[in-house]
């Protein structure tokens, strides 16, 4: 099975093939060669919804949480969120962002919280670093700023709204 993945800004091509005894995972970072890992099934074992993964002589307890194309892997107190797209999802993503994947066409909340104040409205032009809104989460107010110059397409929240993790707050138009 073929996937595309993105981790820490690096794009990968990924293949996974299953046999009775192994997973064969191929990874090809953009511009580099394919590397294949033969993972014995007894070394990657689901136990009580947690995976016990024996890899390069180390024992990891792994938990993978998948939300759409986002896969977050937790192990040993470390964690990493990666994007994984299968063929169907690749198509879907390319339609959404108008070519390529992983474009930043919107501001999403990274955690559940409450909107305290909104500084912008649809049609506003913002510079990099301009404040967009203030969101309160866990007793702290966080000012969310524009990461790049953009034109505001739509503001989907107002002061006082409670938002979930991952909710879209503001959308941008490409300049």
């Amino acid at each position: 099975m073929f996937f595309e993945a993105e981790s820490d800004g690096t794009k990968y091509q990924v293949t996974v093939n299953e046999s009775k005894t192994h997973w064969r995972v191929g990874l090809k970072p953009e511009g580099k060669e394919w590397v294949y890992h033969q993972i014995r099934k007894e070394d990657y074992m689901s136990l009580d919804q947690t995976v016990s993964f024996l890899f390069r002589d180390s024992s990891y307890l792994v938990d993978v949480i998948a939300k759409g194309t986002e896969y977050t892997v937790y192990t040993r107190g470390a964690y990493k969120s990666l994007k994984i797209y299968n063929e169907e999802k690749l198509l879907h993503e390319s339609l959404k962002s108008g070519g390529g994947f992983g474009g930043g066409a919107s501001l999403n909340s990274g955690m559940p919280g409450k909107i305290v104040k909104v500084f912008v409205k649809a049609g506003d032009e913002v510079k990099e670093g301009d404040p967009l809104l203030i969101m309160e989460a866990m007793k702290m107010e966080n000012e969310m700023r524009a990461a790049a110059p953009a034109k505001i397409k739509d503001v989907l929240v107002k002061a006082g709204d409670n938002v979930e993790s991952g909710a879209t707050l503001v959308t941008f138009e490409k300049k």
Binding site: L27, I39, F53, V64, Y71, V73
Partner: peptide
């Protein structure tokens, strides 16, 4: 404390 490859391989197998 974590081999970088563990993240990618685990995610790939779960996606599969």
């Amino acid at each position: 404390f974590v081999d970088e490859d563990v993240f990618l391989i685990s995610a790939a197998i779960e996606a599969y």
